[in-house]
Design a protein around this nucleic acid. Sequence first.
DNA 1: AAGTTTATTGACTCGTCAATCAACAAAAAA
DNA 2: TTTTTTGTTGATTGACGAGTCAATAAACTT
Lengths: 198, 198
Amino acid sequence: MPKLGMEPIRKDALVKATITEIGRTGSLDVTVSQIAKRAGMSSALAHHYFGSKEDMFLAAMRHIMTIYGAEVRGALGVAQTPMARIDAIVVASFSAANFRREAVGAWLNFWVLAQTVPQAKRLVAVYQRRLKSNLLVGLRPLVGARAEAIAEGLGALIDGLYLREVLRPGAPDGAAAAQMARDYLSAHLATPPQDHNL
Amino acid sequence: MPKLGMEPIRKDALVKATITEIGRTGSLDVTVSQIAKRAGMSSALAHHYFGSKEDMFLAAMRHIMTIYGAEVRGALGVAQTPMARIDAIVVASFSAANFRREAVGAWLNFWVLAQTVPQAKRLVAVYQRRLKSNLLVGLRPLVGARAEAIAEGLGALIDGLYLREVLRPGAPDGAAAAQMARDYLSAHLATPPQDHNL
DNA sequence: AAGTTTATTGACTCGTCAATCAACAAAAAA
DNA sequence: TTTTTTGTTGATTGACGAGTCAATAAACTT
């Protein structure tokens, strides 16, 4: 039965199965056997292709971020104006895909993982930098030097809104979250630079 | 040795030990034995006072939120103006206490727990409602009807900023986060109500 | 004093799980 | 065709862990 060139196929299946299982259980408390079974192979084979469970988690994390990155890139591709670019990122961040059980489980659990696994923390940092950099491209033509601070804030707001929607009882409302992010932006666009006073 | 009236003392010790251990490991992957040992008793006694590990987690969650609530209440107590009230909440949210390993571990992991344990989700909802309601008291005198939306946004921003600081490589900067939240507010205060357009 | 409630633990049950290994099969290289 | 590389799994190891239970002891009740 051994067809050659199985490695990428098996790894891919394992990554997807890992994400599915994390979404199913809502935690990192998934066994290699569960993952392997869902991916249609023995747990021994999973260990053969990935050295350890942690490696599987990291690969899954990379995969989730790749998906998200692709979604953003796709949306940016059709955006013509700076404003449209920003909106594209916002909309992509609150797409239905990101509210699927698996995606939610992945993000929340990867944040937890980042606390203790340096590699995971680095991946989170990559995501944050990329988000900020994407926002900056759209913001700089609009607000110049203030872009830096606004990108930082908007990035945080996007994460915060995502978290709220995810934890809110009932179904998440991506559109409402997106609108909230837009409001943040318009408020900052309408405001001239000012001193910080209470 | 059995002195009576041990229950509250033991429970308290267990709750604190639970939080400590979650902070230490950065995950909910802590054993009852670890917790019990840190609290200075046998694991059997821990099971005696709390029915299960999940009960310990929920009690720990309540405790964390109680602490945070007290901190906010304390800060609100000395605030005289609406603006000061909002600022008090912001400052309290980014206090050094909230960036301690244990607090960070607690919050992140409780978000994960909320995905699967309804009781945990309810506790998170309580926190979100209370934060919003506290913000509303300060916001209404300032912006009237717009208070609702701004409170929602500011609440999300606070969570998002917290998350960013926590996941950022290097030490978190609570002051910077607080300033970012203030900027959000001043932008909204300076902006008149407007239509939603891109 | 006898009985009850509260405190406490060591030992145990029953289960799980990550990781390893020996062994087998098929394709490719020599 | 022998050898090596790649794919694959069942069985096993070695360890750990949640929750139960019986037993012991001090305090409080009647």
